[in-house]
Design a protein around this nucleic acid. Structure first.
Lengths: 201, 201
DNA sequence: ATGATCGGAATGAACGTTCGATTTAGAGGG
DNA sequence: CCCTCTAAATCGAACGTTCATTCCGATCAT
């Protein structure tokens, strides 16, 4: 998950993520990070400017990882439906495989502790931009309702995020069948219906 | 929003919410709360056990307020569609009218700083339970797809939450029309199919 | 007068950060 | 192969600040 960093940075970032999820920001002290990562506080400051810098670096690293994960194979085809299905499926799978990263982004994407700059990179380097483009195309081809594509992507993101949240909180089990149902539901919810109904491939 | 509290408690809770949204938990110090609310630190401790207690009381107060707001008029009718439309419409409106409360719950419902007990009360006293019941009934009557009602409610909640998030972050404008489209989309996304007739009105 | 309410300086712990000392790694010369 | 030198890496005690909380005196209501 932190392949582009050196050993020390990797240890610090991994440890920080773990503590941050288990405790919270104010309980995640530098001394605790130092103790658990095996890197002395002095050395942490050799590689990071500050505590804020550690957290923001963590944020950016996870966003980058998530973006690459979700978009894997995204450009293998031009057809909208398979790209839609594949991307959302990968998003769900990512969140289930890396729940800590999911929780962290979910909890801190709204936080003032994350620099606007980090959030900006999230948008450019993440999967949001390409997904918006896909929806835009779907609207252009008359497959989706004519509505702001960013709003539609946002809605669907919310659906999956909350589905995963419910699963992680143990409110229900996120089965394979439920995942497929959810993706299909999202597709149906924005499909341009009525007049253009048929149109078999 | 904090009608059931006395003047001092109300001032503290209101001020805390404001600071918490603008800064973050670790920057929200008791001395700052004291200064901005006009209540001395000593007096805050006369009405609250600790800082944690203030935050958790705030959490519970907002959840209670939200629950009452969303469920207003919920039992005026037995028909599913109007109850569905009305509840989600009120949820969106609540979030737009009280963005600070929305942000707070959104940011801290996952946080370890909020006691499990507070989260538990959120579920019982909030709107989640009654909404689940509504979906269950809709499934029973064959109007919704046969799927875990809690999962469906969770998905729809996510849709609206993220729509509002996008709006609050300035990514797009949440117009009246978009709200109506979103509610209709949610309905369509879980409607038991076969009767693919277009939506009236 | 007396108990509830309030104020704010005092306290002690904890935190982020700094800094000089120490260790490690690697290159170059003999 | 070993010794020397140097710069980077690493360490952790120490520093100054800030914070949540306490304490006790002052004020208010009855």
């Amino acid at each position: 998950m932190f392949e582009s960093y050196n050993k020390v940075q990797k240890a610090v970032l991994e440890t920080t993520l773990g503590i941050l999820i288990e405790k919270d920001l104010q309980a995640t002290s530098m001394s605790l990070i130092a103790k658990q990562s095996g890197v002395s506080t002095g050395n942490i400051y050799h590689y990071f400017d500050s505590k804020e810098a550690v957290i923001n670096e963590l944020y950016k690293a996870i966003v980058k990882f998530n973006g690459e994960y979700v978009l894997k194979g995204f450009y293998d085809t031009d057809d909208i439906r398979p790209r839609f299905d594949r991307a959302w499926d990968r998003y769900v799978r990512l969140s289930l495989e890396h729940p800590q990263g999911f929780r962290f982004i979910e909890q801190y994407s709204f936080s003032p502790y994350i620099y606007p700059e980090s959030k900006g990179e999230a948008y450019e380097g993440g999967w949001c931009g390409p997904m918006n483009k896909l929806y835009e195309e779907a609207i252009g081809r008359g497959e989706f309702v004519k509505e702001n594509p960013a709003a539609l992507v946002q809605m669907h993101t919310g659906s999956f995020v909350y589905l995963i949240k419910g699963h992680l909180e143990g409110r229900f089990q996120l089965t394979e069948e439920l995942i497929r149902t959810a993706i299909r539901s999202c597709w149906n919810s924005v499909r341009a219906e009525e007049t253009a109904s048929a149109d078999p491939a």
